Amino acid sequence: MSNEMNIKKAYVATNGCHGSETQVRQYAETFSRKGYLLTARVEDADVIVADLCSFTHQAKSDSVGWLKSIESQRKPTSEVIVTGCYLGINPGSVEAVVPRVRYMTKEQMRTFSGNTLATPIVPGYVDAEGVLKLKIEDGCGGKCTFCAIPNGVGRRYSYPLDLIMSTIQNYVGEHPGTTVKFVGEDIGFYGLDRKDGTTILTLLDKVKDLEGDFNVRIDVVNPWWFLRYPHLIDSMAEGVSANRIVPYVGVPLQSGSDTILKSMKRLYSRLQFEGVLDTLLEKIPSLGLSSEVIVGFPGETDTDFKHTFEVVDKYNFNPLGVWGYTPFEGTDSFHFENKVNSNVIQERMEMLVALVIDKEKKKRGCTTLEELCAQMEQQGFLPLNTNGKNLFTGVRQ
Protein backbone atom coordinates (compact mmCIF):
# COMPACT_ATOMS: atom_id res chain seq x y z
CA MET A 1 0.00 0.00 0.00
CA SER A 2 2.79 2.42 0.89
CA ASN A 3 4.60 1.70 -2.40
CA GLU A 4 1.43 2.46 -4.37
CA MET A 5 1.00 5.75 -2.52
CA ASN A 6 4.57 6.74 -3.43
CA ILE A 7 4.01 6.27 -7.16
CA LYS A 8 3.50 9.61 -8.88
CA LYS A 9 0.48 10.03 -11.13
CA ALA A 10 0.12 11.92 -14.41
CA TYR A 11 -3.01 13.28 -16.07
CA VAL A 12 -2.48 13.84 -19.81
CA ALA A 13 -5.27 15.07 -22.10
CA THR A 14 -6.22 17.33 -25.00
CA ASN A 15 -9.29 19.14 -26.30
CA GLY A 16 -7.80 19.35 -29.79
CA CYS A 17 -7.83 17.58 -33.14
CA HIS A 18 -6.75 14.10 -34.27
CA GLY A 19 -3.18 15.35 -34.58
CA SER A 20 -3.17 16.56 -30.98
CA GLU A 21 -4.71 13.29 -29.84
CA THR A 22 -1.88 11.30 -31.44
CA GLN A 23 0.72 13.46 -29.70
CA VAL A 24 -1.01 13.26 -26.33
CA ARG A 25 -0.84 9.48 -26.53
CA GLN A 26 2.91 9.84 -27.04
CA TYR A 27 3.19 12.15 -24.02
CA ALA A 28 1.24 9.64 -21.92
CA GLU A 29 3.58 6.84 -23.02
CA THR A 30 6.52 9.06 -22.06
CA PHE A 31 5.28 9.57 -18.50
CA SER A 32 4.37 5.90 -18.19
CA ARG A 33 7.92 4.87 -19.08
CA LYS A 34 9.24 7.40 -16.57
CA GLY A 35 7.40 5.45 -13.87
CA TYR A 36 4.24 7.53 -13.56
CA LEU A 37 0.83 5.95 -13.15
CA LEU A 38 -1.63 7.47 -15.63
CA THR A 39 -4.87 8.75 -14.14
CA ALA A 40 -8.12 10.13 -15.54
CA ARG A 41 -8.68 12.26 -12.41
CA VAL A 42 -7.14 15.74 -12.27
CA GLU A 43 -7.40 15.82 -8.49
CA ASP A 44 -5.20 12.70 -8.16
CA ALA A 45 -2.42 13.87 -10.48
CA ASP A 46 1.04 15.05 -9.48
CA VAL A 47 1.69 16.23 -13.05
CA ILE A 48 -1.02 17.58 -15.35
CA VAL A 49 -0.36 17.95 -19.09
CA ALA A 50 -3.05 19.95 -20.91
CA ASP A 51 -2.75 20.17 -24.70
CA LEU A 52 -4.95 23.15 -25.55
CA CYS A 53 -6.66 23.91 -28.87
CA SER A 54 -7.16 27.41 -30.25
CA PHE A 55 -8.35 26.66 -33.79
CA THR A 56 -11.62 28.59 -33.45
CA HIS A 57 -13.07 31.14 -31.05
CA GLN A 58 -15.16 28.36 -29.51
CA ALA A 59 -12.09 26.15 -29.07
CA LYS A 60 -10.25 29.04 -27.43
CA SER A 61 -13.14 29.60 -25.04
CA ASP A 62 -13.34 25.87 -24.29
CA SER A 63 -9.61 25.81 -23.51
CA VAL A 64 -9.97 28.63 -20.98
CA GLY A 65 -12.93 26.86 -19.38
CA TRP A 66 -10.98 23.61 -19.17
CA LEU A 67 -8.03 25.38 -17.54
CA LYS A 68 -10.32 26.92 -14.94
CA SER A 69 -11.71 23.46 -14.20
CA ILE A 70 -8.18 22.06 -13.83
CA GLU A 71 -7.18 24.89 -11.50
CA SER A 72 -10.21 24.31 -9.28
CA GLN A 73 -9.64 20.54 -9.02
CA ARG A 74 -5.87 20.06 -8.88
CA LYS A 75 -3.79 19.44 -5.79
CA PRO A 76 -1.85 22.49 -4.51
CA THR A 77 1.41 20.60 -5.06
CA SER A 78 0.70 19.42 -8.61
CA GLU A 79 2.67 20.67 -11.60
CA VAL A 80 0.71 21.94 -14.61
CA ILE A 81 2.31 21.74 -18.06
CA VAL A 82 0.47 23.56 -20.84
CA THR A 83 1.22 22.78 -24.47
CA GLY A 84 -0.62 22.75 -27.80
CA CYS A 85 -1.61 25.32 -30.40
CA TYR A 86 -3.19 27.59 -27.80
CA LEU A 87 0.22 28.28 -26.31
CA GLY A 88 1.70 29.54 -29.58
CA ILE A 89 -1.34 31.62 -30.51
CA ASN A 90 -2.11 33.08 -27.07
CA PRO A 91 1.29 33.35 -25.31
CA GLY A 92 1.19 34.48 -21.70
CA SER A 93 -2.60 34.29 -21.36
CA VAL A 94 -2.60 31.04 -19.37
CA GLU A 95 -1.10 32.48 -16.18
CA ALA A 96 -4.24 34.53 -15.57
CA VAL A 97 -6.07 31.22 -15.10
CA VAL A 98 -3.34 28.96 -13.67
CA PRO A 99 -0.79 31.09 -11.77
CA ARG A 100 1.90 28.42 -11.45
CA VAL A 101 2.30 26.84 -14.86
CA ARG A 102 5.10 25.44 -17.00
CA TYR A 103 4.97 26.16 -20.72
CA MET A 104 6.25 23.61 -23.23
CA THR A 105 5.83 24.11 -26.96
CA LYS A 106 4.94 21.15 -29.15
CA GLU A 107 8.56 21.06 -30.28
CA GLN A 108 9.80 20.98 -26.67
CA MET A 109 7.34 18.20 -25.84
CA ARG A 110 8.52 16.20 -28.84
CA THR A 111 12.13 16.58 -27.66
CA PHE A 112 11.10 15.66 -24.11
CA SER A 113 9.42 12.49 -25.36
CA GLY A 114 12.29 11.62 -27.69
CA ASN A 115 14.87 11.96 -24.92
CA THR A 116 12.78 9.79 -22.59
CA LEU A 117 11.77 6.97 -24.90
CA ALA A 118 14.59 4.51 -25.51
CA THR A 119 12.74 3.37 -28.63
CA PRO A 120 11.36 6.32 -30.66
CA ILE A 121 7.70 6.10 -31.63
CA VAL A 122 5.46 7.80 -34.17
CA PRO A 123 2.57 9.59 -32.43
CA GLY A 124 -0.58 7.63 -33.06
CA TYR A 125 -3.60 5.88 -31.61
CA VAL A 126 -6.37 3.49 -32.60
CA ASP A 127 -9.80 5.10 -32.64
CA ALA A 128 -13.11 3.50 -31.70
CA GLU A 129 -13.56 2.20 -35.25
CA GLY A 130 -10.20 0.43 -35.26
CA VAL A 131 -8.47 2.98 -37.52
CA LEU A 132 -4.78 3.51 -36.72
CA LYS A 133 -4.16 7.25 -36.91
CA LEU A 134 -0.50 8.16 -37.37
CA LYS A 135 0.82 11.71 -37.22
CA ILE A 136 3.46 11.69 -39.94
CA GLU A 137 4.50 15.34 -39.58
CA ASP A 138 4.21 18.37 -37.31
CA GLY A 139 3.87 21.99 -38.31
CA CYS A 140 2.57 24.03 -41.21
CA GLY A 141 4.56 26.48 -43.31
CA GLY A 142 1.49 27.98 -44.95
CA LYS A 143 1.06 31.75 -44.87
CA CYS A 144 -2.75 31.76 -45.04
CA THR A 145 -3.91 35.13 -43.78
CA PHE A 146 -6.94 33.69 -41.96
CA CYS A 147 -5.08 31.03 -39.96
CA ALA A 148 -3.02 31.26 -36.77
CA ILE A 149 -2.19 27.55 -36.56
CA PRO A 150 1.41 27.89 -37.90
CA ASN A 151 2.12 30.10 -34.87
CA GLY A 152 0.78 27.40 -32.59
CA VAL A 153 2.32 24.19 -33.90
CA GLY A 154 5.89 25.43 -34.21
CA ARG A 155 8.74 24.15 -36.36
CA ARG A 156 8.02 21.66 -39.12
CA TYR A 157 9.13 18.12 -38.44
CA SER A 158 8.66 14.89 -40.43
CA TYR A 159 8.82 11.62 -38.52
CA PRO A 160 11.44 9.21 -39.92
CA LEU A 161 10.23 7.16 -42.88
CA ASP A 162 11.62 3.85 -41.60
CA LEU A 163 9.95 4.44 -38.23
CA ILE A 164 6.57 5.03 -39.88
CA MET A 165 6.96 1.86 -41.96
CA SER A 166 7.98 -0.29 -38.98
CA THR A 167 5.11 1.11 -36.90
CA ILE A 168 2.61 0.13 -39.61
CA GLN A 169 4.15 -3.29 -40.18
CA ASN A 170 4.30 -4.16 -36.49
CA TYR A 171 0.69 -3.15 -35.89
CA VAL A 172 -0.91 -4.73 -38.97
CA GLY A 173 1.05 -7.92 -38.32
CA GLU A 174 -1.13 -8.37 -35.23
CA HIS A 175 -4.22 -6.60 -36.62
CA PRO A 176 -4.68 -7.55 -40.30
CA GLY A 177 -7.23 -5.58 -42.29
CA THR A 178 -6.39 -2.30 -40.53
CA THR A 179 -6.96 1.09 -42.12
CA VAL A 180 -4.07 3.46 -41.40
CA LYS A 181 -4.91 7.17 -41.58
CA PHE A 182 -2.09 9.66 -42.12
CA VAL A 183 -2.70 12.92 -40.26
CA GLY A 184 -0.75 16.14 -39.77
CA GLU A 185 -1.05 19.88 -40.12
CA ASP A 186 0.18 19.78 -43.75
CA ILE A 187 0.99 16.23 -44.83
CA GLY A 188 1.96 17.24 -48.37
CA PHE A 189 5.04 18.83 -46.79
CA TYR A 190 6.22 15.45 -45.51
CA GLY A 191 9.97 14.88 -45.81
CA LEU A 192 11.12 18.29 -47.02
CA ASP A 193 12.75 19.13 -43.67
CA ARG A 194 14.86 15.96 -43.71
CA LYS A 195 17.09 17.17 -46.58
CA ASP A 196 17.62 13.61 -47.88
CA GLY A 197 15.28 13.64 -50.86
CA THR A 198 12.33 12.17 -48.95
CA THR A 199 8.91 13.52 -49.98
CA ILE A 200 5.26 12.52 -49.74
CA LEU A 201 5.87 10.58 -52.98
CA THR A 202 8.59 8.53 -51.26
CA LEU A 203 6.22 7.77 -48.41
CA LEU A 204 3.46 6.55 -50.73
CA ASP A 205 5.90 4.40 -52.72
CA LYS A 206 7.10 2.75 -49.51
CA VAL A 207 3.52 2.17 -48.40
CA LYS A 208 2.65 0.49 -51.70
CA ASP A 209 5.64 -1.87 -51.39
CA LEU A 210 5.10 -2.72 -47.72
CA GLU A 211 3.87 -6.25 -47.03
CA GLY A 212 0.76 -6.81 -44.95
CA ASP A 213 -3.03 -6.69 -45.04
CA PHE A 214 -3.86 -3.00 -44.64
CA ASN A 215 -4.81 0.13 -46.53
CA VAL A 216 -3.98 3.79 -46.07
CA ARG A 217 -6.29 6.76 -45.97
CA ILE A 218 -4.81 10.15 -46.82
CA ASP A 219 -6.48 12.85 -44.75
CA VAL A 220 -6.13 16.32 -46.33
CA VAL A 221 -3.72 17.53 -49.01
CA ASN A 222 -3.51 21.22 -49.88
CA PRO A 223 -3.90 21.95 -53.62
CA TRP A 224 -0.41 23.37 -54.05
CA TRP A 225 1.22 20.01 -53.32
CA PHE A 226 -0.49 18.49 -56.35
CA LEU A 227 0.94 21.39 -58.37
CA ARG A 228 4.42 20.92 -56.92
CA TYR A 229 4.38 17.13 -57.42
CA PRO A 230 2.74 16.38 -60.80
CA HIS A 231 3.16 12.62 -60.18
CA LEU A 232 1.34 12.66 -56.83
CA ILE A 233 -2.02 11.90 -58.46
CA ASP A 234 -0.50 9.01 -60.45
CA SER A 235 1.01 7.62 -57.25
CA MET A 236 -2.35 7.79 -55.49
CA ALA A 237 -4.08 6.17 -58.47
CA GLU A 238 -1.59 3.28 -58.45
CA GLY A 239 -2.19 2.79 -54.73
CA VAL A 240 -5.96 2.76 -55.22
CA SER A 241 -5.66 0.21 -58.05
CA ALA A 242 -3.57 -2.00 -55.77
CA ASN A 243 -6.17 -1.67 -52.96
CA ARG A 244 -3.49 -0.13 -50.78
CA ILE A 245 -4.83 3.46 -50.74
CA VAL A 246 -8.44 4.30 -49.88
CA PRO A 247 -10.04 6.28 -52.76
CA TYR A 248 -10.64 9.40 -50.70
CA VAL A 249 -8.88 12.72 -50.13
CA GLY A 250 -9.73 16.14 -48.74
CA VAL A 251 -8.67 19.11 -50.87
CA PRO A 252 -9.52 22.47 -49.23
CA LEU A 253 -11.00 25.07 -51.61
CA GLN A 254 -11.57 27.97 -49.16
CA SER A 255 -12.78 30.23 -52.00
CA GLY A 256 -13.58 29.99 -55.70
CA SER A 257 -12.57 33.60 -56.29
CA ASP A 258 -9.03 34.32 -57.50
CA THR A 259 -9.21 37.72 -55.82
CA ILE A 260 -10.05 36.21 -52.44
CA LEU A 261 -7.59 33.32 -52.85
CA LYS A 262 -4.84 35.87 -53.44
CA SER A 263 -5.91 37.84 -50.37
CA MET A 264 -5.88 34.58 -48.39
CA LYS A 265 -2.40 33.72 -49.79
CA ARG A 266 -3.61 30.30 -50.87
CA LEU A 267 -1.01 29.78 -53.67
CA TYR A 268 -3.37 28.53 -56.39
CA SER A 269 -6.11 29.84 -58.67
CA ARG A 270 -9.61 28.55 -59.24
CA LEU A 271 -8.49 27.15 -62.60
CA GLN A 272 -5.60 25.29 -60.96
CA PHE A 273 -7.86 23.92 -58.22
CA GLU A 274 -10.37 22.63 -60.75
CA GLY A 275 -7.54 21.18 -62.83
CA VAL A 276 -6.31 19.19 -59.83
CA LEU A 277 -9.78 17.83 -59.04
CA ASP A 278 -10.57 17.04 -62.68
CA THR A 279 -7.33 15.06 -63.00
CA LEU A 280 -7.95 13.26 -59.70
CA LEU A 281 -11.43 12.21 -60.80
CA GLU A 282 -10.22 11.22 -64.26
CA LYS A 283 -7.51 8.93 -62.90
CA ILE A 284 -9.44 7.72 -59.83
CA PRO A 285 -13.13 7.56 -60.91
CA SER A 286 -14.20 6.07 -57.56
CA LEU A 287 -12.58 8.91 -55.59
CA GLY A 288 -14.48 10.49 -52.71
CA LEU A 289 -13.75 14.18 -52.21
CA SER A 290 -14.18 16.47 -49.23
CA SER A 291 -13.41 20.16 -48.98
CA GLU A 292 -13.81 23.32 -46.93
CA VAL A 293 -14.85 26.86 -47.77
CA ILE A 294 -14.70 30.11 -45.85
CA VAL A 295 -17.64 32.42 -46.50
CA GLY A 296 -17.48 36.18 -45.97
CA PHE A 297 -13.72 36.68 -46.02
CA PRO A 298 -12.92 40.43 -45.91
CA GLY A 299 -13.62 42.01 -49.28
CA GLU A 300 -15.75 39.11 -50.58
CA THR A 301 -18.29 40.53 -53.04
CA ASP A 302 -21.41 38.89 -54.46
CA THR A 303 -19.36 38.03 -57.55
CA ASP A 304 -16.61 36.45 -55.44
CA PHE A 305 -19.16 34.32 -53.62
CA LYS A 306 -20.77 33.35 -56.93
CA HIS A 307 -17.44 31.85 -58.01
CA THR A 308 -17.31 29.78 -54.81
CA PHE A 309 -20.91 28.67 -55.34
CA GLU A 310 -20.07 27.55 -58.89
CA VAL A 311 -17.15 25.38 -57.76
CA VAL A 312 -19.20 23.75 -55.00
CA ASP A 313 -21.96 23.10 -57.54
CA LYS A 314 -19.51 21.50 -59.98
CA TYR A 315 -18.16 18.83 -57.61
CA ASN A 316 -19.72 16.39 -55.15
CA PHE A 317 -17.90 17.26 -51.94
CA ASN A 318 -18.96 14.90 -49.22
CA PRO A 319 -18.46 16.28 -46.66
CA LEU A 320 -18.19 20.00 -47.28
CA GLY A 321 -17.15 22.12 -44.31
CA VAL A 322 -18.72 25.58 -44.44
CA TRP A 323 -17.14 28.20 -42.20
CA GLY A 324 -18.39 31.73 -41.71
CA TYR A 325 -15.38 34.04 -41.47
CA THR A 326 -14.69 35.59 -38.08
CA PRO A 327 -11.66 37.81 -37.31
CA PHE A 328 -9.07 35.88 -35.32
CA GLU A 329 -6.41 37.76 -33.39
CA GLY A 330 -2.92 36.77 -34.46
CA THR A 331 -3.81 36.44 -38.15
CA ASP A 332 -3.07 38.92 -40.93
CA SER A 333 -6.73 39.13 -41.92
CA PHE A 334 -7.63 40.35 -38.43
CA HIS A 335 -6.46 43.79 -39.58
CA PHE A 336 -8.06 43.67 -43.04
CA GLU A 337 -10.67 46.26 -43.92
CA ASN A 338 -13.90 45.70 -45.88
CA LYS A 339 -15.32 43.21 -43.39
CA VAL A 340 -18.48 41.49 -44.66
CA ASN A 341 -21.70 42.03 -42.71
CA SER A 342 -22.56 39.07 -40.47
CA ASN A 343 -26.08 38.84 -41.93
CA VAL A 344 -24.61 38.57 -45.42
CA ILE A 345 -22.23 35.84 -44.23
CA GLN A 346 -25.13 33.91 -42.73
CA GLU A 347 -27.17 34.25 -45.92
CA ARG A 348 -24.29 32.99 -48.08
CA MET A 349 -23.66 30.05 -45.77
CA GLU A 350 -27.31 29.07 -45.99
CA MET A 351 -27.13 29.23 -49.79
CA LEU A 352 -24.20 26.80 -49.85
CA VAL A 353 -25.84 24.44 -47.37
CA ALA A 354 -29.07 24.50 -49.40
CA LEU A 355 -27.10 23.74 -52.57
CA VAL A 356 -25.40 20.68 -51.08
CA ILE A 357 -28.66 19.41 -49.60
CA ASP A 358 -30.47 19.85 -52.91
CA LYS A 359 -27.73 17.95 -54.78
CA GLU A 360 -27.82 15.11 -52.27
CA LYS A 361 -31.63 14.91 -52.37
CA LYS A 362 -31.58 14.56 -56.16
CA LYS A 363 -28.80 11.99 -55.97
CA ARG A 364 -30.78 9.86 -53.51
CA GLY A 365 -34.26 10.47 -54.88
CA CYS A 366 -35.53 12.21 -51.74
CA THR A 367 -38.23 14.87 -51.88
CA THR A 368 -37.81 16.38 -48.40
CA LEU A 369 -34.93 17.13 -46.04
CA GLU A 370 -36.52 14.92 -43.39
CA GLU A 371 -36.60 11.99 -45.80
CA LEU A 372 -32.98 12.59 -46.75
CA CYS A 373 -31.77 12.82 -43.15
CA ALA A 374 -33.69 9.67 -42.20
CA GLN A 375 -32.15 7.77 -45.10
CA MET A 376 -28.65 9.00 -44.26
CA GLU A 377 -29.10 8.17 -40.58
CA GLN A 378 -30.28 4.64 -41.41
CA GLN A 379 -27.12 4.15 -43.45
CA GLY A 380 -24.93 5.24 -40.54
CA PHE A 381 -23.79 8.65 -41.77
CA LEU A 382 -22.71 11.35 -39.37
CA PRO A 383 -24.07 14.92 -39.22
CA LEU A 384 -21.76 17.72 -40.30
CA ASN A 385 -21.53 20.78 -38.08
CA THR A 386 -21.22 23.92 -40.21
CA ASN A 387 -20.99 26.77 -37.70
CA GLY A 388 -24.11 25.67 -35.90
CA LYS A 389 -25.88 24.13 -38.91
CA ASN A 390 -26.52 20.41 -39.17
CA LEU A 391 -25.73 18.83 -42.48
CA PHE A 392 -24.72 15.29 -43.36
CA THR A 393 -21.44 13.84 -44.46
CA GLY A 394 -20.29 10.91 -46.52
CA VAL A 395 -18.31 9.58 -43.57
CA ARG A 396 -19.81 6.54 -41.92
CA GLN A 397 -19.84 6.13 -38.16
Score class of each variant (00 low, 15 high):
T39Q: 09
L253M: 05
P298A: 10
Y268K: 02
T179L: 14
L227K: 09
D62K: 15
N222R: 13
I89F: 02
V356Q: 13
S20Y: 12
L117G: 05
T308N: 05
D313S: 12
A148K: 00
V207H: 02
L281Q: 14
T331L: 10
G296N: 04
R74Y: 05
Q254C: 01
V322A: 05
M351D: 07
F226Y: 15
P383K: 08
G365R: 02
T393S: 15
V246R: 02
G188E: 04
E274C: 14
D304H: 06
V221Y: 01
V295R: 02
I187V: 15
L355A: 02
V246Q: 04
A59F: 03
T119K: 15
K8N: 12
S113W: 01
S32P: 00
Y248Q: 05
K8I: 07
T331E: 08
S78P: 09
S257L: 08
K314W: 05
E300M: 08
K362P: 00
V97T: 14
G152Q: 04
K283P: 06
K389V: 06
Y325T: 10
N316L: 12
E95W: 05
W224A: 11
L289I: 04
T303Q: 12
Y315N: 05
P285L: 09
D332Q: 14
E174Q: 15
F381V: 11
M349K: 14
V295E: 02
D313I: 00
T303S: 13
D332H: 11
T179G: 10
N215A: 03
V293C: 11
A28H: 09
C147A: 05
Q379E: 15
K306G: 04
T331A: 10
G92C: 09
A237Y: 08
V216W: 03
C85E: 06
G177T: 11
S78W: 08
H175C: 06
V293R: 01
Q272T: 06
F297E: 01
G139I: 08
M104I: 04
A128L: 11
E129Y: 09
Y27C: 01
Q169W: 03
S32M: 03
D304W: 01
P319D: 11
S20R: 13
D304Y: 01
P223M: 11
T145I: 05
E238R: 12
L352S: 02
V276D: 04
L161P: 02
Y86P: 04
G288I: 00
E282A: 15
Q378Y: 08
N243H: 14
G380S: 09
F189P: 01
C147E: 04
M351T: 11
S269F: 02
M349P: 00
G177M: 11
G141I: 13
T367Y: 07
K133N: 15
G173L: 13
G380W: 08
Q346H: 10
R100I: 11
E300T: 05
E350Y: 00
G173C: 12
M165H: 00
Q378G: 13
Y248E: 08
S166V: 07
N3Y: 14
K68Y: 09
F214W: 07
I7R: 14
E174K: 14
G130K: 07
D193Q: 13
V295N: 01
L232W: 04
T368W: 06
E79F: 06
T178M: 07
G365T: 04
Y27D: 04
P120L: 10
V220T: 15
V249Q: 02
T116Y: 06
I294K: 03
L352H: 02
T179E: 15
T56K: 02
F182K: 10
M165K: 07
